[in-house]
Simulated scan of single mutants.
Amino acid sequence: MLFDRIVSRWGLGWLAAALGVPLLLATGLVTARALTPEPARVAPPPAAPTAPATEATPTGEPVPAAAPAPATLPVVTYDPAPAGFPADPRPSDATPLTEGLTPTRKVAAYDAPGGRPLAFLAPTINGVEVTVPIVERRTGWTAVLLPSATRRIAWLPPDGDWATVPLRDQIVVERRPHRLTWYRDGHAKRSWQVSLGMRGQETPLGRTFVLGRTPPPEPVYGGVDVFALGAIPDDPDAIPPGLAGAHIGLHAWQDDDTLGEDVTNGCIRLTRSGQRQLLDEVRPGSVVLVVDALPTPPPTA
């Protein structure tokens, strides 16, 4: 079970026995030890790994060599990712990301093509297969959204041990109208009203992704599984100290009384039926984009 301890809506100071890695709160973030593996039915077969690096790209541009990665580098886990990774250059870009990357073995992650190795991406985090969206390719290198960070990317070398998977879905959350829209293949499928982060603990803007899912840790979640996202709060000091390292989540609630309001600790809260549909349809690795508002409102199914 993902959540081993929880801060409830009515008692932010209450924690169960201190167990492991933080995840989402009851009003917005919660803490947990292990994610729930995604059922095999939602995982499309991986494509072949990328080809080894060559001396030049197809355009003749040299491929920067990958510096050796020391074995002592940290591994990206559910705890906040190591510092030093570059910012996402297009955090509010609504263009769908249609390809994900799954490490088949531990892969070194760099701060730039040919740059410094800062950490390793492992095939799993807390027992769940890792799929990260690909945001850019440059000179033979591949940039992905970094897990356990907000609006950060990592560069992977051409000869890394990883495979690619197709991504069809995108979730767009608009903070001003409190609206979540699910897109498939670039077309809006459904929209729902949502609750978002309260003042000082706003739901972080920018691109993130579905990291994994967990059973509901308490009845207040309406008996529906929770999606843990790759993003963490923008201001960790604004949340209770016991939730240091918590992730932003997407989940249902026991009632719909606060939909359209800013009441969570940063998480995205929607209806139980809407959450069930997203759990059935959206695979890990799919992008979740949070913006203030889209220029043109999406259609509502």
Score class of each variant (00 low, 15 high):
P219C: 09
E202H: 12
V263L: 00
G206H: 02
P216Q: 08
P233L: 08
G200M: 03
W253G: 15
R272S: 11
P233H: 05
L259M: 10
P204G: 07
L250S: 13
L278V: 10
F227M: 14
S195Y: 07
I268G: 03
G249M: 06
G230E: 04
D235C: 09
Y221K: 02
A252K: 05
R213M: 13
S191I: 08
L196G: 01
T271W: 00
T203I: 00
L259C: 06
P241S: 13
L270Q: 05
R199P: 11
P217D: 07
Q275L: 11
S273Q: 13
Y221V: 02
T214P: 09
G200C: 02
Q193E: 15
I248R: 03
L211Q: 07
V210E: 02
P240V: 13
W192K: 07
N265E: 15
G206K: 00
V226G: 04
R269G: 03
V226S: 05
D262P: 07
T203G: 03
L243P: 07
Q277F: 11
L229H: 07
W192P: 08
E261A: 12
A246K: 09
L259P: 01
V210I: 15
T208D: 00
V224S: 05
P236Q: 14
P240I: 10
G274M: 00
L205N: 03
V220F: 11
C267E: 00
Q193K: 15
G266E: 00
G249R: 01
I268R: 00
F209I: 00
G206A: 08
C267R: 03
P240G: 12
W253I: 06
G212E: 08
R190M: 08
P216F: 09
P219L: 11
D262W: 06
T271I: 01
R272K: 11
I239Q: 10
L278S: 00
D225Y: 08
G242M: 12
A228D: 11
M198P: 04
P216E: 12
I248F: 03
P240M: 09
I239G: 12
V220A: 12
D237N: 15
P217A: 10
S273W: 09
R276C: 01
A244C: 10
G274A: 10
P240Q: 10
P240N: 10
G274N: 01
A238N: 13
V224W: 06
H251L: 06
L229K: 06
V263G: 02
Q254C: 10
A231L: 05
V226R: 01
H251G: 04
G249W: 06
P215I: 07
Q201N: 14
G249L: 04
G206T: 00
L259Q: 07
G242W: 12
R269W: 01
E202K: 12
P240H: 08
G242P: 14
P215C: 03
P217H: 02
Q254E: 14
P241Y: 09
T271N: 01
G212Y: 07
E218V: 10
